[in-house]
């Protein structure tokens, strides 16, 4: 069981790698899809803006490859947002693996923008495999200014001004808006669920 980490050349790659090392999970950093051919699952990390990230995924061949891939896929933070159709952040088309749009978050009176810190996870779907062993209301670490609204593909939500999709899933494609690699024991459990075979 080896997990490919898509080398998006963004700053949280090191954190994701170290998190898998703490779990004792094998991984391979894959700049191109060919380098991930032996892997049985894929993590798409990312921080920063959607536009430059999509440009890079297209240049490396990953965008097209992910659109045809059937292996379990986990997007993290920006990597989760890239799974959707469209982002207002960079006015750009995304991978289109999960229906929906990425919108600018308006926290209202709940606090400052962006949404930064530990917020609670509320399960929406009881059969979400990433949440096995995770307590309802557990805190995970979020850092984002754009978000995907609640939809039929929301597996877990959080709330900051408005309902936010915290975990999204459509079939083998899933994503976490928060950073499981920086979410203490809860994050480690979610990553364990993914690398140990949650589809």
């Amino acid at each position: 069981m080896t997990t490919a980490i898509v080398d998006t050349s963004t700053a949280n790659i090191a954190s994701v790698r170290y998190a898998l090392e703490r779990l004792g999970a094998r991984y391979k950093l894959a700049e191109t899809p060919d380098e991930a051919s032996e892997c049985d699952r894929i993590i798409l990390p990312g921080v920063g803006a959607a536009g430059p990230a999509m440009t890079r995924l297209k240049a490396t061949g990953w965008a097209q490859a992910l659109q045809g891939d059937q292996r379990p896929l986990l997007g993290v933070c920006l990597g989760m947002q890239l799974l959707f159709d469209y982002s207002v952040e960079s006015d750009c088309e995304l991978l289109g693996l999960i229906p929906g749009r990425v919108e600018r978050l308006d926290p209202g009176s709940d606090g400052p923008w962006p949404h930064m810190g530990w917020n609670t996870l509320t399960p929406v779907k009881s059969d979400e495999p990433l949440l096995e062993g995770v307590t309802d209301g557990a805190h995970v670490y979020f850092v984002h200014g754009f978000y995907t609204p609640l939809s039929a593909h929301t597996s877990a939500s959080t709330h900051y001004g408005i309902g936010i999709t915290a975990i999204a899933r459509k079939g083998h494609v899933a994503g976490c808006q928060f950073h499981p690699e920086r979410s203490a024991k809860t994050g480690a459990q979610i990553l364990t669920n993914f690398v140990k075979g949650a589809a």
């Binding site: 954190s15 998190a19 703490r22 670490y141 203490a184 480690a188």
Partner: peptide, 11 residues
């Protein structure tokens, strides 16, 4: 910095 990133699972 790298050693700290390896050691802890919080930001």
């Amino acid at each position: 910095v790298g050693r700290v990133a390896q050691a802890i699972d919080i930001p």
